[in-house]
């Protein structure tokens, strides 16, 4: 009876943690499904939506608000999906999309740079220098993205109920902690939260419709 959003620093084993949490709680685990739904509903190629939610804003985004429009489509698809309840969402912007909704457990998974470099080197078979450079670039892009759309860095702890550093705690420890917290009554979906979620979805639909017709 709940919704969990997991924001993950890249190469911090957040996907693995989200999948295990969902399995343990018997919840649905979603991420890319949201983009696929938005792509289908609004007839926009998935890659364009991915760029909108992943990349730092370009000069054209500032002029044309293209990124904002695509993010509105993704937000609508996201809000529609989580109406079902019992969902673990991992990926971009979940914590921003649900800021006004009570009882949603918002988690961030982080790891030290050295830990992430190691994971990236192993996974992509690249050198330490290349891994460090790539992570630095990804972090900058994420920061610019969230500053542009929400005026705050995605690393700010105030956005989350729980931030877990997995260097020491490890993925399995993180899963145990998240499941423990998720079972607490304050993170169970209430009628008030459901109503708020519905209201936000209606507002999101109106916004998507108006921005689609304006384009």
């Amino acid at each position: 009876m709940g919704i969990i959003t997991i924001s993950r620093g890249s190469y911090s084993r957040g996907v693995e943690i989200a999948e295990k949490v969902a399995e343990k709680l018997g919840y649905e685990c979603i991420s890319r499904e949201i983009l696929l739904k938005a792509s289908k509903d609004f007839n926009v190629p998935e890659t364009e939506l991915l760029h909108a939610i992943q990349d730092a804003p370009s000069i054209f985004d500032h002029i044309k608000d293209g990124k904002k429009r695509y993010v509105a489509f993704i937000r609508q698809a996201f809000l529609e999906h989580i109406q079902k309840d019992n969902v673990v969402y991992h990926g971009y912007a979940g914590h921003f999309f649900t800021r006004e909704i009570p009882n949603i457990l918002k988690v961030r998974i982080i790891a030290n740079m050295d830990y992430r470099v190691k994971v990236l080197m192993e996974r992509e078979k690249i050198s330490e220098e290349e891994a460090r450079k790539l992570l630095y670039k990804i972090d900058i892009e994420r920061r610019k993205w969230s500053m542009y759309l929400y005026g705050m860095d995605t690393n700010i702890t105030e956005l989350y109920d729980l931030v877990l550093h997995i260097d020491c705690i490890n993925a399995d420890g993180a899963v145990e902690i998240i499941c423990d917290v998720a079972k607490r009554p304050c993170f169970h979906t209430t009628p008030v939260a459901k109503r708020k979620l519905k209201e936000l979805l209606e507002a999101a639909k109106n916004y998507s419709n108006s921005s689609a017709s304006a384009s």
Binding site: I110, D161, F187
Partner: peptide, 20 residues
């Protein structure tokens, strides 16, 4: 000091409350 990387865990008490 608010940077999350300094800690193993950052807990927001609004919802969890002290005993939680």
């Amino acid at each position: 000091t608010r940077t999350p990387y300094l800690y193993d865990i950052v807990l927001h008490v609004d919802c969890m409350q002290v005993d939680g």
